[in-house]
Amino acid sequence: MHRFILKRLLQFIPTVIGVTLIIFLLLNLVPGNAALSSAGRLELDPEVVAQLRKDFELDKPVIVRYVNYLGRLAQGDMGKSMLRRYDVSEVVFGRLGATLKLACAALAIALIVGIPIGFISALKQGTWLDIGLAVVSVAGVSIPQFWLGILLMYVFSYMFNILPTSGYGGGAFSNLILPALTLGVGYAALLARITRAAVIEVLAADYVRTARAKGLSALAINLRHVMRNSFVLILTTSALLFGSLMGQTVVVERVFSWPGVGSLLVESIFQRDIPVAQGCLLLIIMVFLIVNLVVDILYRVINPRIDFK
């Protein structure tokens, strides 16, 4: 067990280095990108441009810059904003709370709505209810999230005027409802489809047949055998979904002017503020990586049978 945790932690390090390398190269290799382009747009004089180049180490080779960046990153320093010179780590981490709140609320909706729907569909496999739920969930997977957000806003904020249109509202619950629903609906649909498939697979397993043969009641079989065994699969998938969910917060935050990491990322892309964009991207990915790491280790603790190669 300890060996597994240690091994998993050791695997984590190359992944993080690989991810930082890819992001760093993407944002720093393309010429005409960094300080030169932002400086060019602002029409600064050559001395200032030279100073900018020096401040942001643009005169050094990419590899040197990457190694320096990694060194600073290890100390929690993400550099300074190119435009406003603020400390990137401070601002980016300051925005993390709002994003996590949105992502967790959406995940909660997805789990609370998606799993029971998938479960019911699987148990009622082939009935009208199953068909109806299948239609709803394929629609839920296909609907563009930001469009759903706009529609929800139109109905609940404009027509009925019961929820605020956008903004953080100082953390008010009513401000969270629409963004969380917008983000959660698609994942609820996806989770319903995944749960249905997982439960159907478990239902066909030998131990379920044995339980039936023993004469256990349907309720006992469903609760003790089917539910417990399909949970492992469902939860692994949920952890994977969380990554895509963290990514989609970027779009939903933009729709609802939610002050999270995602809206900062989009702003920084438009302003070509590379250190800020880099910080936002890394933070979003790191949250996802850490969630997956924790979930992986938890499974091993809960269910020692699982064999991770």
Partner: peptide, 18 residues
């Protein structure tokens, strides 16, 4: 595996940023 550990939207945004 590294590609899978970066959400697609985020990766696409990184490329768009550059």
């Amino acid at each position: 595996n590294i590609m899978l550990s970066i959400p697609v939207v985020v990766f696409a945004l990184a490329i768009m940023a550059s």
